[in-house]
Amino acid sequence: MSTKTDKIDRLGELTAAKQDEHGVSLWTEAFRRVRRNPTALVGIAILVIFVLVAIIGPWVAPYSPTDFIGKGEVRSGQGIIPGPSAEHWLGYDHQGRDELSRLLVGARQTLLVGIISTLIGLTIGALVGGIAGAAAGLGGRVGRAVDSVLMRIVDMLLALPSLLLAVSIAALLGASLTTVMIAVGVVSVPIFARLLRGAMVAQANSDYVLAATSLGVKRTKIAIGHILPNSLAPVIVQATLTLATAIIEAAALSFLGLGNPDSATPEWGLMLAEAQRFLDIRPGLAIYPALGIIITALGFTLLGEAMREALDPKLRK
């Protein structure tokens, strides 16, 4: 009898549904999915370590990254750079500074370059793309003209090679970390702009926008309240992925000598650039920062891919 009543209860449950639970928004659900995805967890783990290092690096570094403590032992001209030892786990760099300390402290610069340049790209890109998208989607004839002009400008930007852009900016502002950040950021502007605009135009043609229009909701409110939030997912994913490429690109520009010429503040890209001269003597000096850059970029890419999966409405059941 008891099993039968159980089953009757089950029937009751079915009809009553899960009343007590609160609704789950799409963001919450996406977050849950990211949490269940092993790829995402690996990416997050990498990034947590990276960010931790970036924050506490200067405090845990065994030596000052700018002290030429090994000056006496290093004769880079004669090809003598001492390797790892008990006191200096990764040895000295070409000027006799502790390599490990420089790597630990350099993480912060690298992270900052990545984040700031991505933010530059994201802000300008999203602004241009958002305006173009809203105008194209809802603005009628005038809107389409505004959209056309904005997007043609973006197209021109897209045609510029990032290196050329960086060189020109460096020519204007001088080689510095700011130059690198601006150059890398500006190059990603068209990507964000096109992405957001495309998503918004697609959303503007959706039924729920028509529904909001027929409710009598104002156009600006529809653009900000409906179209924009529903267009953000691909932009967020792109931002995560751009963080990875931004770090690599910034490193590349530093490597080419467009970054901060002052090696007092360590930065992975710059360290890589300086190490190239000593590749034959101490390849480790190039390998350590390169590994750092690659692993960090991988972390962002893994997280980005996992977020793409979690946010893609087509993959939702």
Binding site: G23, S25, L26, W27, S206, D207, Y208, L210, A211, A212, H226, P229, N230, P313
Partner: peptide, 8 residues
């Protein structure tokens, strides 16, 4: 499709 998926 006629309901905004991000609105309750």
């Amino acid at each position: 499709s006629s309901l905004d998926p991000r609105q309750n």
